[in-house]
Simulated scan of single mutants.
Amino acid sequence: MDRTYGVRRTRVDHWRAGLACVPESVWERVDAEELILADNRLTAVSPRLAALTRLHMLDLGHNRLTALPEEIGELTSLAGCLYLHDNRLTSLPESLGRLTRLRYLNVGENPLGRLPESLGDLRELTELRAQQARLTELPETVGDLAALRELWLRGNELARLPNAVGRLRELRELELRDNRFTAIPDPLRGLPRLRRLDLRGNGVGELPDWIAELPALEKLDLRWNPVTVPPEVEERLAARGCVVLW
């Protein structure tokens, strides 16, 4: 019994099997609720994946995938995790937005360049990882992720965040390490539950006064930035228990 989601799993597991292609028998396991095909040598996934309509979790991480079939959007029972990290994906299908019950999505370590507009349809998503994905911007629709609590964007090419990020009222953790920010992104000033903000390794030069007004902020990491922290801002943050590293 899976205690996370409270349902019994029928596992199809080819963990570290060195597969270059998925056996056809896998696509016949229509009762499968977890499918783990991580750590293989897969370069493609068959559209027959759509037959696995009972899947709650799918792990395709650490492969050599260059594309995903549009049919992945048929897996509308995915209510747990979708791992796509450490592949060679240059884009994600818009049909990904049909996975409206998804809670965790990892698309990091792929040369994506951008995220699909349909991302905003994932209204139950609580954690999004898109680290080292060559992103230069985020779609405005990211602001529609009303349940999002964690956003991990380390190692991209971001210099700004869309104003829509200010609508992420449930966001607790935001990692912007190793990007191209020269200032604290202004859309963050309206985030009432933001606890941890990681801006290490950017070009941030100074702090805005409003940073001390973020009511839930517990840790602000500004190491490896040419930053100056005004004493009064540091004092205000320290007075309410916020740790500032710089």
Score class of each variant (00 low, 15 high):
residue 103 R to S: 03
residue 174 L to W: 08
residue 163 N to V: 10
residue 166 G to V: 06
residue 185 P to I: 01
residue 223 R to N: 13
residue 135 L to Y: 07
residue 127 E to H: 08
residue 147 A to Y: 10
residue 108 G to A: 04
residue 210 W to N: 08
residue 198 D to H: 14
residue 141 T to K: 03
residue 193 R to K: 14
residue 229 V to A: 10
residue 155 G to L: 03
residue 148 L to F: 12
residue 128 L to V: 04
residue 141 T to S: 06
residue 172 R to L: 14
residue 199 L to P: 12
residue 137 E to W: 14
residue 125 L to T: 13
residue 161 L to V: 02
residue 196 R to Q: 11
residue 135 L to N: 06
residue 152 W to I: 04
residue 188 L to H: 12
residue 138 L to R: 03
residue 140 E to G: 05
residue 177 R to Y: 08
residue 196 R to W: 09
residue 215 P to H: 14
residue 194 L to V: 02
residue 136 T to S: 05
residue 192 P to R: 03
residue 194 L to D: 02
residue 201 G to A: 09
residue 170 E to N: 10
residue 182 T to M: 05
residue 96 L to R: 00
residue 123 R to G: 08
residue 212 A to Y: 11
residue 213 E to S: 08
residue 119 L to M: 10
residue 229 V to I: 15
residue 95 S to F: 00
residue 204 V to T: 07
residue 196 R to S: 13
residue 172 R to G: 04
residue 116 P to N: 06
residue 213 E to W: 09
residue 113 G to W: 05
residue 182 T to D: 14
residue 127 E to Y: 04
residue 121 D to W: 12
residue 141 T to Y: 02
residue 97 G to V: 00
residue 225 N to T: 11
residue 159 A to V: 01
residue 126 T to D: 10
residue 116 P to H: 11
residue 156 N to S: 03
residue 172 R to T: 15
residue 158 L to N: 05
residue 103 R to W: 00
residue 130 A to H: 04
residue 180 R to K: 11
residue 164 A to V: 03
residue 159 A to S: 13
residue 208 P to S: 02
residue 168 L to I: 06
residue 181 F to S: 00
residue 146 A to S: 12
residue 147 A to M: 07
residue 122 L to Y: 07
residue 175 E to N: 15
residue 206 E to N: 11
residue 176 L to N: 11
residue 102 L to W: 00
residue 199 L to T: 01
residue 181 F to G: 00
residue 144 D to K: 12
residue 172 R to C: 12
residue 141 T to Q: 04
residue 98 R to K: 03
residue 171 L to H: 13
residue 141 T to P: 01
residue 220 L to G: 14
residue 222 L to P: 15
residue 199 L to Q: 04
residue 126 T to S: 08
residue 103 R to A: 01
residue 125 L to K: 12
residue 219 K to N: 13
residue 166 G to M: 09
residue 106 N to T: 01
residue 124 E to S: 12
residue 152 W to Y: 09
residue 111 P to F: 10
residue 160 R to N: 04
residue 213 E to H: 13
residue 122 L to M: 07
residue 221 D to Y: 14
residue 190 G to W: 13
residue 111 P to L: 07
residue 196 R to N: 10
residue 99 L to D: 00
residue 118 S to M: 03
residue 117 E to Q: 13
residue 183 A to M: 05
residue 202 N to P: 15
residue 114 R to E: 08
residue 153 L to T: 06
residue 189 R to L: 02
residue 134 R to M: 02
residue 167 R to D: 11
residue 146 A to G: 07
residue 230 P to Y: 09
residue 196 R to M: 11
residue 107 V to S: 04
residue 117 E to M: 05
residue 129 R to V: 11
residue 151 L to E: 08
residue 134 R to A: 08
residue 92 L to M: 00
residue 103 R to C: 01
residue 159 A to R: 10
residue 199 L to D: 08
residue 110 N to Y: 06
residue 191 L to F: 09
residue 106 N to A: 02
residue 170 E to D: 04
residue 181 F to Y: 05
residue 149 R to S: 03
residue 150 E to S: 12
residue 170 E to F: 02
residue 203 G to N: 10
residue 133 A to V: 09
residue 144 D to F: 15
residue 161 L to D: 05
residue 127 E to L: 05
residue 185 P to A: 02
residue 192 P to Y: 15
residue 198 D to N: 15
residue 213 E to C: 03
residue 102 L to S: 01
residue 202 N to V: 14
residue 128 L to T: 06
residue 217 L to N: 03
residue 221 D to R: 13
residue 179 N to T: 01
residue 140 E to I: 06
